[in-house]
């Protein structure tokens, strides 16, 4: 199967401190992939480099065939990145925000408007669509950012802790939405500290620590690697502890 994301030898240092250390990662098209790791493991740095927000020191990244060093605009066109603390425009309402995002991705206005209405309804934001985002709760802001990530129908979605701040119902809604995207051929990569989510949703999992991939595979494969047949939590703790990262 073709790769939605292919990272080779990715390295990044901040002031001499290695954040990502010759990292290799391959995520297949149409896959739900979870990237797990302890705090400071290099997950967010890796994802920010993939999204073009941070420049790598070394390594190559290809997104659905677009090398981000050669064709950054083409790569970004098929990508949506949702950071862990999405920053919105407080003085814009939900429609205005989505109009701006759609404009950045050069969407056809009529299609963008209809897609915005659909997403806001789906995420339960329709009644508040004309309120300014500064009055939104943390969960509503997260949902609006998610709507922004979805509006241009990206082939690859990268989400950094997407369920932070969401209540149970909203979290369920977002999980269903992501699963549905994968079912329809999209690719989703997410980071989370809630291992049950990765266990339930992800087809393949990568465990990262100290900037390197410790293990990668399906849950079964990871269990085999860790030599234990318990939960993902056990496997995760076992692998990161043996690496001295936990």
């Amino acid at each position: 199967m073709a790769a939605a994301l292919e990272i080779r030898g990715l390295t990044k240092q901040f002031g001499g401190k290695v954040a990502v250390d010759h990292l290799d990662l391959r995520v297949r098209e149409g896959e739900f992939h979870a990237l797990l790791g302890p705090n400071g493991a290099g997950k967010t740095t890796t994802l920010r480099i993939v999204a073009g927000l941070t420049a790598p020191d070394q390594g190559t990244i290809s997104i659905l065939g677009h090398d981000i060093a050669v064709d950054p605009i083409g790569a970004r066109r098929v990508l949506a990145f949702l950071p862990d603390d999405p920053l919105l425009y407080g003085k814009l309402d939900a429609f205005e925000y989505l109009e701006f995002v759609a404009g950045l991705w050069s969407m056809e206005p009529r299609a963008a408007r209809s897609r915005a209405e659909e997403l806001l309804a789906l995420l339960g934001l329709a009644p508040d669509a004309h309120k300014r985002a500064e009055g939104y709760s943390r969960g509503m802001r997260q949902k609006l950012a998610l709507a922004g990530a979805l509006i241009h129908d990206p082939a690859l979605m990268i989400l950094d802790e997407p369920l932070t701040g969401l209540d149970a119902a909203a979290a369920r809604l977002v999980k269903d939405l992501l699963v549905e995207r994968v079912r329809r051929g999209g690719t989703v990569i997410l980071t989370t500290h809630i291992l049950e989510i990765a266990e339930r949703l992800a087809e393949r999992i990568s465990i990262i620590a100290r900037g390197r991939i410790l293990a990668q595979g399906t849950l079964e494969e990871l269990r085999g690697r860790a030599g234990r047949g318990d939960t993902l939590e056990d496997v995760f703790l076992d692998l990161t502890a043996s690496d001295g990262a936990a």
Binding site: G52, L53, I73, F81, P83, P86, Y89, L104, W105
Partner: peptide, 17 residues
């Protein structure tokens, strides 16, 4: 800019924006 990540991750040249 309030949402710099959004603008920088968009498929447009930053200098144009």
């Amino acid at each position: 800019e309030e949402a710099p990540d959004l603008v920088r991750a968009a498929p447009v040249e930053s200098w144009r924006v």
